[in-house]
Simulated scan of single mutants.
Amino acid sequence: MKTRAECLEKYGSDYFIEKKIKEGELFKVGKGIYSEKKYVPEIAMFVYKYPNAVVTMKSAFYFHGLTDVIPDECDLATTRDATKIKDERVKQYFVPDDFFEEGIEAADYKGYDIRIYNKERMLIELVRYKSKLPFDYYKEIILNYRKLLPRLDMQKIQDYALMAPKSNKVLEILQMEVL
């Protein structure tokens, strides 16, 4: 993928960019985002467009195979001081700066690199947002986490829980519902 600025640098002008589009050598995949591939997954385009954001919540649960519910929008986490994302296809979660970087991993999604929170961090996010999620959806993911428990890094889960806002409540819910 390339930004408009990168395309201008490579092709010289908007005229030549449009020419490449008409010839089928370049495709506009989003506002100001171009690709040499015709199909680019929406999540990959958003991660490229917002490089400081991290895939989280429903998008991450789906990516990690914890649910089969396809998200309606792309959930991205940013720091609290980040600019508001003005795209109705994106749901933005503002995360405290001291907790934002914890659990980020690079993953491959259909040939595209994305930044996403790991499964251990997503368990903490599930518990933190429990009251904002539909009950059936929450239960499905909790049951899938219980099946995964032997393969998860328990030390990471405990560390993330202690760093999370309202850590006492998070630890209490983890103890009662997951562990």
Rank of each mutant, 00 (worst) to 15 (best):
T78H: 03
L174D: 02
V127L: 14
P51E: 08
M154H: 14
K130R: 15
E125T: 04
Y117H: 01
E73W: 00
D75C: 14
D159I: 13
E88R: 10
L66F: 10
Q158N: 13
F135M: 13
Y137R: 02
E172F: 11
I33R: 06
K91W: 00
S59A: 09
I85W: 02
P71E: 09
Y112H: 10
Y138G: 02
P96I: 10
I173R: 04
I157N: 02
V54I: 15
I173A: 09
F46P: 00
R146C: 10
L162S: 14
K110F: 10
Q92C: 07
K20G: 01
K49W: 03
N144K: 13
D87P: 01
L152D: 04
V178Y: 03
K169E: 14
E9F: 07
K130Y: 03
G12P: 03
M154W: 07
L26W: 01
L152A: 08
E36D: 15
K110H: 10
T3Y: 08
D14W: 05
H64V: 05
M1D: 06
S13V: 06
D108S: 15
Y93G: 08
M1C: 08
F16K: 07
Y138M: 07
E101Q: 10
K31L: 11
I33Q: 05
E36T: 14
E23D: 13
A161Q: 02
K38F: 11
E120Y: 09
N52A: 10
E6N: 03
E25Q: 14
K119L: 13
P150M: 12
E177M: 05
E18W: 04
E120Q: 09
V47N: 09
R146A: 09
D98S: 14
I142M: 12
K139W: 04
F16P: 00
Q158A: 11
M57L: 14
A106G: 06
Y15S: 13
D14N: 13
Y160P: 01
K31D: 13
M163H: 08
E73T: 13
M45D: 01
F100E: 08
K2H: 10
T83G: 07
I70V: 15
V55C: 09
L26C: 06
S35F: 05
E105S: 10
D153R: 05
L152M: 15
L179F: 15
M163D: 07
D75M: 12
D98L: 10
Y112F: 15
T67Q: 05
G30P: 01
V95D: 01
R146I: 15
Q175C: 09
K139Q: 12
Y93P: 02
K49C: 03
V90W: 08
I141T: 05
I85P: 02
T67D: 04
L126P: 02
M154D: 04
T78Y: 03
A60N: 00
N168I: 11
K132H: 12
K130Q: 15
K166H: 12
I21T: 01
P134A: 11
V47H: 03
D72H: 12
E25G: 11
Q155Y: 13
G12S: 04
K156C: 06
I43E: 02
L66C: 02
K49P: 01
Y11Q: 06
G30D: 15
K132S: 15
I17P: 00
V47W: 01
D136T: 14
D136W: 04
Y137S: 09
L76M: 08
A107Q: 13
S59V: 07
Y93L: 12
M1L: 12
R4V: 04
Y160N: 01
R80G: 14
E25V: 06
M1A: 10
S35G: 07
I124C: 11
E6W: 04
R151T: 15
